[in-house]
Design a protein around this nucleic acid. Structure first.
Lengths: 162, 162
DNA sequence: GTTTCTGCAAAACCTTTGCACAGCT
DNA sequence: AGCTGTGCAAAGGTTTTGCAGAAAC
């Protein structure tokens, strides 16, 4: 995400006032790459501004989204809309167990689509999501690749990591 | 999605009883590639089973997910969790305006991740999502690529479609 | 006949909205 | 001073839960 000063300027330029609440939300987001939900931002702001309301958090996240500084991201089976502070071209690594979401900064440049495949869409961007199991969740499960319980889909067509 | 008979067998094998409600939901999904939400499935089942409850629809979709026959998919800013009936390796084309979601059956085989990038994750699969504007929404907007209103983010780093 | 499923109602959860008061510039 | 933002409360939409009666095997 861009620097706090840049974001504050951007707010001013768009006629949005710099309040203590907004400043705190921006400060929190500037160095956050954890893709938090509104609720998570709210809870962390509560520690310094105990009487902030959820409305304000939702408003500010919406303003940042409209300004193009925040991007809503997929959140499969996790609760609540998550936000991505990273506006660079990047991709995602998503733990199917704990829903941790990491950024991958590599650029897979030429993901070509034939005209037929594009179905008349005007393509704006693309993003690759890798689904997997994070180290912590592997440990939690027992770390054995073979004797998994549960869902079959986890094991099928797994590409190599290298 | 697999055939109705296969799904019915799968249910039987897992001790799940074949009820009229479940059968109808399966029949509906077998030939549906529109990535419907639970609510959309519910509304369409209502036409033939007017007193089905949402609970039953949610239950059945959950069972299919646990069996690995249905995959929850990202649904950015659209309402409700969408489900993907396609378990083959495939990718997505997503309209950022109307949230239409199309399948692309191409296989981008070697999406390599370095060990460092994988961060210790055990990678299971990956999926590419192309974001764009569908033909209908282009028309609705006026079809001019140049003079767009709205959000900056839509125009940045747009790759060619060919 | 036993077990599981369904539908209902209620609750939980996430997000949006309307409005009066407070705060920023 | 004027305008915008904030917090509250309520509403709207989605999903989950507990349970009694109904249906499948």
């Amino acid at each position: 995400m861009r620097s706090l000063e840049t974001l504050l300027d951007l707010f001013r330029q768009n006629g949005l006032k710099i309040t203590a609440q907004r400043r705190m939300i921006l400060e929190l987001l500037v160095n956050d790459d954890s893709h938090p939900t509104a609720e998570q931002v709210y809870r962390r702001i509560l520690e310094t501004i105990p009487d902030i309301s959820r409305t304000t958090v939702y408003n500010t996240l919406g303003e940042l989204t409209d300004l193009g500084e925040l991007t809503p991201v997929h959140n499969i089976s996790g609760r609540g809309q998550r936000y991505d502070t990273n506006q660079e071209t990047h991709h995602h690594l998503h733990c199917v167990e704990c829903h941790e979401l990491l950024d991958i900064s590599r650029d897979y440049e030429r993901m070509d689509l034939s005209l037929e495949e594009a179905s008349g869409y005007r393509i704006l961007r693309h993003q690759v999501t890798f689904f997997g199991i994070c180290p912590d969740c592997q440990t939690r499960r027992g770390d054995h690749a073979a004797d998994e319980d549960g869902r079959q889909l986890l094991m099928q067509s797994a590409p190599d990591t290298e």
